[in-house]
Amino acid sequence: MEVPYILDALVSVLLLLGLFFLLTGTFGLLRLRDVYARMHATSKSTTFGVAGVVLASLFYLRYLGLSSGLKEFLIIVFLFLTAPVGAHMIARAAYRGGVSLWQGGVVDDFKKWLETSQE
């Protein structure tokens, strides 16, 4: 089916933007030095990446009249609600499970607090 040039360009740009963020997230996952830093890369760039791709599909399918766009919107809302909860829980479990910060870290107030509060 034919779509206007502007929509075509917009969808392509959104898709490429999404891919860029997805790849950056994965790159960070491989490159950064401890779990916590890696989570910064994934839980964020990935959310943004998916948002880009979903927006592209929202515009495209909505123009073709195949979808109202509400479900795509729902995916974005859902991801933005759950991604931080998941990240928070993994970080917490990792720290309590004894995964330490990379040595180059500067401050660790949490360790002090855990030591004093568990007396």
């Binding site: 994965t26 996952l29 779990v35 890696r38 994934t42 998941g86 990792a94």
Partner: peptide, 11 residues
């Protein structure tokens, strides 16, 4: 570590 794997699988 295991959290690393969980984060990777989530990704």
């Amino acid at each position: 570590t295991i959290p690393d794997r969980v984060v990777a699988l989530d990704n």
